[in-house]
Simulated assay, not measured.
Amino acid sequence: MKINGNEIRPGNVITHKNGLWLAVKTQAVKPGKGPAYAQVELKNLIDGTKLNERFRASETVERVRLEQKDHQYLYAEGDMLTFMDTDTYDQIQIPRELLEDRAAFLQDGMKVTVESHEGRAIGVALPDHVTLAVVEADPVVKGQTAASSYKPAMLENGVRVMVPPFVEAGERVVVDTNEITYVKRAE
């Protein structure tokens, strides 16, 4: 599907320079002189390289539709993660590096969406939020009363996030898996 260069949005997958690229960030720029353009940060879905490109509104790019299937996370073995198709029960293995830092949020039996292009897995979409226990939280410093003061905490999966001062070790919190940030206390 062809789209104009100024219609590229974060999350879109496009073909560019004989490769598959994911739009990570986009910014509309209108210089004082010359035509407007979209400044797009792209990430190559095959080798992970990054690229900054300018696309004018008059340019067209090919937007790629990815096949999405529901899978269930089973286990990790070395650098490979094993998922099971929830319809056919077929198992596939995906390299851990495809998920980068978000691989730490995988939990046994978690439902995920595997995105593939021409039969090759190129992405895994985790649930937006997961609930994890805080195993270690720094004590609150007396006199720190600013509303925006956060303290570091270690989660049960080994990931460090900044949490509000009232969160203590042993509590369960909801974490955003995309931004890797604290959302709220778990109910």
Rank of each mutant, 00 (worst) to 15 (best):
Y37S: 07
Q39M: 10
E41R: 12
E41G: 01
L42P: 05
L42N: 09
K43P: 00
L45I: 01
I46M: 11
I46P: 00
G48H: 08
N52K: 14
N52E: 11
N52M: 06
E53T: 11
E53V: 12
R56F: 15
A57V: 05
S58R: 14
T60D: 02
T60R: 14
T60A: 03
V61Q: 01
E62C: 01
E62A: 11
E62P: 00
R63M: 06
V64C: 02
V64W: 02
R65P: 07
L66H: 08
Q68D: 13
K69M: 04
K69W: 04
D70A: 09
H71C: 10
H71K: 07
Q72W: 07
Q72N: 12
Y75D: 05
G78I: 11
G78T: 11
T82G: 01
F83N: 08
M84D: 00
D85T: 11
D87T: 13
D87E: 15
D87S: 08
T88N: 14
T88A: 12
Y89S: 13
D90E: 15
D90P: 01
Q91K: 15
Q91H: 11
Q91P: 09
I92Y: 07
I92K: 10
I92M: 14
Q93N: 13
Q93T: 15
Q93L: 05
I94W: 08
I94Y: 10
P95I: 00
R96W: 06
E97F: 12
L98I: 10
L99F: 08
L99S: 06
E100Q: 09
E100N: 10
R102A: 14
R102H: 04
A103Y: 12
A103D: 13
A103W: 12
A104V: 05
F105S: 05
L106F: 04
L106V: 07
Q107H: 03
D108E: 13
D108F: 08
D108C: 00
G109Y: 06
M110N: 02
K111W: 01
E115W: 00
E115D: 12
H117R: 04
G119P: 12
R120P: 02
G123N: 03
A125H: 09
A125E: 15
L126M: 08
P127V: 09
D128C: 01
D128N: 09
V130A: 04
V130Y: 03
T131G: 10
L132Y: 03
L132A: 05
L132N: 04
L132D: 03
A133S: 14
V134F: 06
V134W: 04
